[in-house]
């Protein structure tokens, strides 16, 4: 599993594949105050990204991958 769901935190690791999106969506529906840790993520399938965009969880840690971080900030940080 490239997303590990802790009590109130989803930890994304390495490459998060398209299959994860459904589970992520369900989890975020149940946990409206959930946070997300993207620190170890190097790529995520856009299905996951749009779930994050729609659910707007707090991003606790941004990716260490600088390029990915810029991309994700463009999508997840309100202008």
């Amino acid at each position: 599993m490239s997303i590990e769901f802790k009590r109130n935190l989803a930890v994304f690791r390495e490459v998060v594949s398209v299959e994860e999106a459904e589970g992520l969506l369900e989890w975020l529906q149940k946990k409206p105050t959930a946070k997300v840790d993207l620190g170890a993520c190097v790529h995520l399938h856009p299905a996951n990204l749009q779930v994050l965009m729609a659910a707007k969880p707090v991003i606790q840690t941004w990716p260490t991958d600088a390029q990915l971080r810029v991309w994700l900030e463009s999508a997840l940080v309100a202008h």
Binding site: L25, Q29, V51, A54, W71, S74
Partner: peptide, 18 residues
């Protein structure tokens, strides 16, 4: 590059992740 939502997002319960 930037990523944008095409439309406002629906409530999560109605969202189709795929």
């Amino acid at each position: 590059g930037c990523i944008e939502a095409r439309d406002p997002w629906p409530p999560l319960a109605e969202m189709d992740a795929y």
